[in-house]
Amino acid sequence: MEEQPGLSDQYRTASPWPVFVALGLVLSEIGVFIGLFPVAVFGLILFGGSIAGILTESGYVTRPWPTMVGVGVVLALIAAGLAVAYVPISSITVANIGNGPVLTRLVAVAVAGVVMVAMGGVGSVMEQTKV
């Protein structure tokens, strides 16, 4: 009797990351396009974290933290660029964040980017201090 019937040594075990990439992409699109702030932020963080995980698992990068920081910076820059291009500067105040649909969605993308940068930075610091 084999311990793992049906599997041979030539096949690697299945990776869970593609499921999380797809789930993060779906949740982020639902959150951004429908305007559900927490769903958008969670979906984008799940998507970016899964990208970092899949790149680390496949050996393209050695640590996931710089990838998370990079994806977070890209998200924040995209949100800031779209805000400058499509939202009048006079309407960008803290009081107006929940009022305009475009601004609220861009804030969700920017918040997800900032959270990912913070997660990547904290993860990198924690990894370096671990002895």
Rank of each mutant, 00 (worst) to 15 (best):
I89Y: 09
P66T: 00
L82T: 09
P88T: 14
L77S: 12
G81C: 06
I78P: 00
A85Q: 15
A80L: 09
N96V: 00
L75D: 07
Y86N: 14
A83F: 07
A79G: 04
G70F: 03
L82N: 11
S90H: 11
N96H: 10
G72E: 07
G81V: 11
I92K: 04
T67S: 05
G72T: 11
S91Y: 00
A76L: 12
S91E: 12
N99R: 10
V84A: 10
V71R: 02
V71A: 03
A85G: 04
A80P: 00
V74S: 07
P66E: 02
G98D: 12
V94G: 02
I89T: 14
V69I: 13
M68H: 02
S91G: 01
I89W: 13
A85C: 07
N99L: 10
Y86M: 12
L82G: 05
I89A: 15
G81W: 06
L77G: 04
G70E: 03
P66Y: 02
S90W: 11
L82I: 13
V71Q: 01
V74T: 11
V87T: 09
L82K: 08
A76T: 12
M68E: 05
L77I: 10
V71N: 02
T67M: 06
A95M: 06
V69S: 03
P66G: 02
P66A: 05
T67R: 02
N96K: 03
I78L: 14
A80T: 08
N96D: 07
V73Y: 09
T67Y: 01
G81Y: 11
G98W: 11
L77T: 12
A85D: 09
Y86R: 13
P88F: 15
V87P: 04
P88D: 15
G81R: 07
V69T: 05
V71F: 12
V71L: 11
T93N: 06
V69N: 01
A83N: 13
G72P: 07
P88N: 15
A76G: 12
M68Q: 11
P66Q: 08
A79V: 04
G70P: 04
A95N: 06
I89P: 00
V87F: 08
G72C: 12
V87H: 09
I78T: 12
A80D: 08
L77P: 03
I89L: 13
G81E: 05
I78Y: 10
Y86H: 14
A79S: 13
A95T: 09
I78M: 10
V94L: 15
Y86D: 13
A79D: 01
G70K: 06
